[in-house]
Amino acid sequence: MRVAVYPGSFDPITNGHLDIIKRSVKVFDEVIVTVLINPEKKGLFTPEERVELIKKVVKDIPNVRVESFFGLLVDFMREKNSNIIIKGLRAVSDFEYEFQMALINNTLDANVETLFMMTSAQNLFLSSSSVKQVAMFNGDITGLVPEVVAEELKAKIKETRKKKGD
């Protein structure tokens, strides 16, 4: 069974991420979408909230599992009996960073390979950061994220503003 891991912060998951997931499941028997917990990054959504959002978005895709993980990706890969990492690329700048990460992961475990998937043209500009920024200024995020994510994102921003007293 060919199991691939699609890691990321997914804060929040976008239509670009979803496109990579849908295309990946055509190539692999199972795709594990994993929210990597980075203690250096303070996300808008908690890792648990991100996992739940992704589960809602992929509920109709049978060969996708969603988990979170803290630590080295290669350790997670071993735990899941996978040696394929899937990474989506939008631009050359993505490639430079992801290429370095692929080399590091391959150095840590020579059995781990990274498969790069080019984003679809309609998602070329899309990032979680840009979606959050548009949403924070009440911009229209229709078509950028799945509908359930748009609703949760708007609610989360409203909740965050209340806490800050904005």
Rank of each mutant, 00 (worst) to 15 (best):
K56L: 11
K56Q: 14
V57G: 02
V58F: 04
V58E: 05
V58C: 04
V58Q: 05
V58M: 01
K59M: 05
D60G: 03
I61W: 06
I61A: 06
P62S: 14
P62H: 10
N63T: 13
N63D: 05
N63F: 00
V64H: 07
V64K: 12
V64N: 11
V64R: 04
V64P: 12
V64I: 10
V64E: 00
R65E: 15
R65L: 13
R65I: 11
V66Y: 12
V66A: 10
V66M: 10
V66F: 12
E67D: 15
S68M: 15
F69A: 03
G71L: 13
L72P: 09
L72C: 12
L72Y: 11
L73C: 08
L73R: 13
L73N: 08
L73W: 15
L73A: 07
L73K: 13
V74D: 03
V74W: 01
D75Y: 04
D75R: 07
D75M: 03
D75P: 11
F76D: 04
F76Y: 15
F76L: 10
F76Q: 05
F76S: 02
M77C: 14
M77W: 07
R78W: 01
R78P: 04
E79N: 13
E79Y: 13
E79L: 15
K80P: 10
N81Y: 00
N81D: 07
S82I: 05
N83G: 06
N83Q: 09
N83C: 10
N83Y: 14
N83P: 01
N83V: 10
I84C: 10
I84M: 12
I84K: 12
I84N: 06
I85W: 07
I85H: 09
I85C: 09
I86N: 09
I86G: 06
I86L: 14
K87N: 03
G88Y: 02
G88V: 11
L89G: 11
L89E: 04
L89I: 14
R90I: 03
A91D: 09
V92Y: 12
V92C: 02
V92K: 00
S93R: 11
S93H: 01
S93N: 13
S93D: 13
